[in-house]
């Protein structure tokens, strides 16, 4: 047993956890931005799927990975515009319209894949970009600094998002709109404009998450995300709507997944019990939600369309 848990295995497991956390982190950062302004988007998974397919298709046709990444973002922006129109001026119930977006993305990505590609043809994948100097550090370097660019982008976005939300005027408006749209409105902040911006930014991150996934895997398949987007939403609550919290949640989820996978690979979990082990991330998230829900309060205006007092 002890010789199984070598440094190599531990390092590999942590690196795998970070990799697994990446799409969750991108998607949940995006969702957090939207929720801070009072908009819940249950359609993340659908947007991820569309972003994944579109970027996959572009890479397949052009063999240009970064064009694929941009396509993922663009797909997210378009879906974001769509969702913003539904939820802001049209004031649709957010929980449910999100399910509509999810179903649309699920069906549409599958439909497009079957009609345009069909066979799961491989595409170019990200290559690892070892960070100069840092990647040379023993153990830590291998764990943290020998990843694909998308991993760095996702984790660098954490301080960026935190800064924008906490330290900029725009961030102030976002928080105001999420807590009390009436007072934000009375102070001259355009609730609609702020929400359009956050929804589109959030969705573009969901699209990016999809692109990151498809290009990391080098393949697309029906329902590629396997409900990752829904977990990303849960991680936003887990992270108490704060970027570092969301990162902690994504990492926890990724790490548990990696540990279970590694333990299965090494035969530490009997095959009959592997399904039970696979429940671990979900159960731990629920337990964590219980703790978080009592300590932190969600944005007061979350899921409430803003109707200016008549």
């Amino acid at each position: 047993m002890s010789d199984i848990l070598t440094t190599t295995v531990i390092v590999a497991t942590i690196a795998s956890g970070i990799r697994l956390a990446t799409p969750f982190l991108l998607a949940s950062l995006g969702e957090a931005i939207g929720q801070r302004s009072g908009v819940l988007n249950l359609g993340v998974d659908g947007v991820m799927l569309l972003g994944a397919f579109c970027s996959y298709y572009v890479v397949l046709e052009t063999e240009n990975i970064w064009l694929g990444v941009l396509t993922g973002i663009a797909t997210g922006l378009i879906m974001g515009l769509f969702y913003a129109i539904i939820t802001v001026p049209l004031r649709a119930e957010q929980g449910v319209s999100g399910i509509g977006i999810y179903l649309f993305g699920l069906g549409m990505s599958d439909l497009l894949f079957q009609k345009l590609v069909g066979t799961p043809l491989p595409i170019d994948q990200f290559e690892e970009w070892p960070v100069p100097v840092l990647s040379e550090i023993p153990i830590v370097g291998e764990m943290l600094f020998q990843h694909t660019p998308m991993v760095y982008i996702a984790f660098l976005l954490v301080p960026v998002v935190a800064f924008i939300i906490n330290r900029t005027t725009f961030g102030l408006s976002v928080r105001a709109v999420g807590e009390s749209p009436e007072s934000a409105d009375s102070l001259g902040v355009s609730v609609g404009k702020v929400r359009f911006a956050t929804i589109m930014a959030g969705n573009s991150l969901a699209g990016l998450a999809g692109a990151a996934l498809a290009i990391e895997l080098g393949i697309f398949q029906q329902n590629l995300t396997n409900a990752m987007g829904f977990i990303a939403i849960a991680l936003v609550y887990f992270g108490a709507w704060r970027a570092p919290g969301v990162m902690a949640g994504s990492l926890l989820f990724g790490m548990i997944g990696a540990i279970v996978l590694q333990a299965k690979t090494l035969g530490l979990i009997p095959r009959a019990w592997s399904d039970i082990a696979a429940m671990a991330p979900a159960i731990i998230t629920i337990l964590a939600l219980i703790i978080v829900a009592n300590r932190f309060r969600q944005p007061a205006a979350l899921t409430k369309p803003y109707v200016r007092g008549d």
């Binding site: 449910v96 319209s97 509509g100 977006i101 699920l106 069906g107 599958d110 439909l111 079957q114």
Partner: peptide, 18 residues
Amino acid sequence: PSALVIALNGLIVVFVVS
């Protein structure tokens, strides 16, 4: 592909809710 109907269901939800 029957996936069309899933996409269509999604659109119907969106339109009805909107």
